[in-house]
Amino acid sequence: MYSSLVRIQNTFGFFTTVAFVVAAFIAASDFVTPRAPVVNVLKTTNLQVVRGRPHYYSSKKEEYAIIKFTLDADLSSLFTWNTKQLFVYITAEWPSTSVSGTTLPSNVTSNQAVIWDTIITSPSADHLANIGPIALKKLRKSAAGKPIDPSRGKITLKNQRPKYQITHPSGKIAETEDVTLRLHYNVQPWVGVLTWNQNADYGLWNALGGGLSKKFNLPALKKKDEGKKAKA
């Protein structure tokens, strides 16, 4: 009855039960923490469409849009003790003009592509970030002694180059109309549910304020000699 095997079993069983209950409490604490993310400025600063190849060995030529933008956002309320990292990304969205005869309602954006993203780690997850040793030292120093650092959620970018040059499966993207930029975020917890930006308020979590740029049209393809002239 009271063999050591049974005792080990009971101890392990109790340990897992306690661990799961504590984890459940931590996960539930997310829902009682208010969130009020807001985007003050999101606008394009420079638009360009160039021709290029998808990769070095490809002979296919495609058009690529390079969308530079300015961003000012305050996502600091998303950082709590259960935040492991915040994934922030900006998408370019535009409606399809011709979907083989069928007309989509105008509010459906049928094309969406990420042009820029960033991972903001919580100080407790800094050691997991995939950055060089010097950058890591700097990052750790910036939040020395702080288990939570909401100031990392304040993002200010001026005339930022996009990380990804986007195209369309057809290879054509020049002169696309009604393009908008939209900011999104994804909160990655230490334990619990993953959450994304909302369009409506749920409980204590407010919808993302702003985060949508004005509509713009992509320019025509940049000609080669034009580029030379600009350089000269």
Binding site: F87, S96, V99, L104, V108, S110, N111, Q112, A113, V114, D117, Y164, I166, H168, P169
Partner: peptide, 9 residues
């Protein structure tokens, strides 16, 4: 992995 582009519906 994460979805980064979506074309069509």
């Amino acid at each position: 992995h994460r979805v980064v582009r979506k074309f069509g519906t």
